[in-house]
Nucleic acid binder design. Sequence first.
DNA 1: GTACGGCTTGACGTCGGCGTCAGGGCAAAC
DNA 2: GTTTGCCCTGACGCCGACGTCAAGCCGTAC
Lengths: 142, 142
Amino acid sequence: MRIGELAARAGTTTRTLRYYESRGLLPARRDTNGYRTYDESDLRLLRQIRTLQDFGFGLEETRPFVECLRAGHPEGDSCPASLQVYRRKLGELDALIAELGAVREQVGRQLARAEAARAALAADAAVPGGPEPECELGGGPR
Amino acid sequence: MRIGELAARAGTTTRTLRYYESRGLLPARRDTNGYRTYDESDLRLLRQIRTLQDFGFGLEETRPFVECLRAGHPEGDSCPASLQVYRRKLGELDALIAELGAVREQVGRQLARAEAARAALAADAAVPGGPEPECELGGGPR
DNA sequence: GTACGGCTTGACGTCGGCGTCAGGGCAAAC
DNA sequence: GTTTGCCCTGACGCCGACGTCAAGCCGTAC
C-alpha cells in the first residue's frame, strides 16, 4: 500500500508519516517509481505510535515500542525498555496530576475569596447606611 | 526604579519585562536617557502576572487582572472579567485533570498487563514442560 | 493532448514565553 | 581616558509535531 492509503487507514496524514520516517521511526520501502510502499506490519507499528501519542507520549518515547514490535514481539510493550517508559510516564503523570490538583485548589480558593469580597460589596451597597464602597465598582451613593 | 531592579525584585529577567511591554501588558515610562522607569505599582502588576503565570495561566489570561489593578481596584481579581478567567481556568483544569487521570489509568493497566505477561513467560520458562514461549524472548523450542 | 489525483523533496510557518546574541549608548568609578 | 555595569533595539533560536505551500514527476482517464 502507498502512503495515502496507510495514512487514511491509521487516521492520520501523509505529512505525519513522512515526518516519522525522517525521525527514523517508520522507514518505508520504495517501489520502482520512488513511491513509498508499506504493508500490514507497518500499519501495526503506526497504530502503536498513534496510540501512545494519544496518551501524550513523546515521539521518542514510542521508539522502544516500535522497535519491540519490529523485533518480532507480539506486543509493543513486551520488552523491558517499553515497560521502563510506562513506569517513567506513570511517575510523570502522577506528578503532573498532583501539581495540577494543587493549582486547581489554589485557583478555587482565589475565586471563592474574590466572589465573597464582591458579595460583601454588593451587600454593603444594598444596605442603606452600610459601609462605603471602595471604588466605582460598587457604585453606591454617598 | 529601572528595569534590572524591578526584574530582580520580582524574581524574573529584564528580557521578560521587555517582552511584557511588547505585549502591551506592562508599559513603562522612560526617563531622559531612554531608560525604562518603574514604580511600586508596577511591581504589584508584575507580581500579579507572575503569580498567574506560575499557575499556568497564559499571558493574555493575566491581562484582565492587570487592567483591574491598573483601574485602581484593590486586587487583580476584584473585577468580573478576572472572575470569568478564574472560572474558565477551573473548567480547563478539571477537564485536564480528568483526562490525565484517565490516561494514567490506561497506562497503569497496560503496564500491569504487560508485566503479567512477562511474569507468565518467566514462570513458563522456569517450569520444565510448561507452555511454549512465543518468541526468542522466552527462548523456548517448539 | 491534457486534465487529474497522488506521489516526490524541500523549506518555511505555527504556538508561547521567553533565551541569547550582536552592536551600540550612558554614567559613574578609577 | 578607559573600564565597568547597566541600559537600549533588533533579530534569530528553541521546543514538538506536524501544517502548508512550492514546484515538479507518475500514471490513468477522457
